[in-house]
């Protein structure tokens, strides 16, 4: 199973990024092979609709689940159409969240925010 996580830097020791759509990188982690691949998030520099583009990238990278602290409604619509489940991260550590996910300790992200659209998001 492949999981996607927005991350601040392209290393496993880095932190989960607070933003989904405008995170600098995504980690695509394969729970079977334990392989980590970091991809640049080209949506980060978008004028608008960053969440949609980032979600498209998650779909294209064939992730089955997304682990994120929060997610906007447009991105959530894309992920829902692709049947990708969104789980809420519980700490900053990437590794802790991966472990918690594998142990089935992460719950689904229930609060989908209406998007920041240029107003904050930090």
């Amino acid at each position: 199973m492949k999981i996607a996580i927005p991350v601040d830097e392209g290393i496993l020791e880095s932190n989960v990024c607070i933003s989904f759509g405008r995170t600098p990188y995504f980690l695509i982690y394969d729970t079977e092979t334990k392989e980590s691949v970091f991809i640049d998030n080209s949506a980060a520099a978008s004028t608008g609709g960053a969440g949609i583009k980032a979600a498209q990238a998650i779909v294209d990278n064939k992730a089955d689940a997304l682990l994120t602290p929060r997610c906007g409604e447009n991105a959530a619509d894309v992920l829902k159409a692709a049947e990708i489940k969104i789980f809420k991260t519980t700490s900053e550590s990437i590794k802790d969240n991966i472990d918690a996910f594998i142990e089935g300790k992460l719950s689904l992200l229930n609060e989908i925010h209406p998007g920041f659209h240029g107003h904050g998001g930090k």
């Binding site: 949506a43 978008s46 004028t47 608008g48 609709g49 960053a50 949609i52 583009k53 979600a55 498209q56 779909v59 447009n74 619509d77 894309v78 159409a81 692709a82 049947e83």
Partner: peptide, 23 residues
């Protein structure tokens, strides 16, 4: 169309184009 749109108003998911009117 998806690649062209600078506002990312389109996504292509599961062989279907999704259009975000508000974007």
């Amino acid at each position: 169309c998806v690649d062209f749109c600078k506002f990312n108003a389109l996504a292509y998911i599961k062989n279907k184009l999704i259009i975000f009117d508000d974007v």
